[in-house]
Amino acid sequence: MTPAEIRAAVIDILETIAPDEDLSNLDDAKEFRDQMELDSMDFLDIVMELRKRYRVQVPEEDYENLVSMASTVSYLEPKMAETPAE
C-alpha cells in the first residue's frame, strides 16, 4: 500500500468507528482527538480494525503513534508496504 492508500484505509476505519463525524476536512497534522470525538475505547477499535482488516499488529507501546493521521500513516507505512490495496 502507498501512503495515500493507507490514509484511505484509515479514513475508512474512522468512518466505521465514528459514523457521525465529517472527516472531509480532517487535518492530517492535528491530533484526531482535537478534531473529532474519540475516546480510549475508540482507539482500541482502530487497533482492532487494523488487525482484522489488514492483519497489522499494533502493540500497546506503539499506541502513541496513532494520535494523528500523519503519524499513523508514517507508523503504518513499513508495516503495510507489502499489504495489497483493496
Binding site: T16, I17, A18, P19, D20, E37, M41
Partner: peptide, 8 residues
C-alpha cells in the same frame, strides 16, 4: 442516540 452510540 447517534450512530456511534448505536454501534457501540
Amino acid at each position: 442516540q447517534n450512530r456511534r452510540e448505536v454501534r457501540r
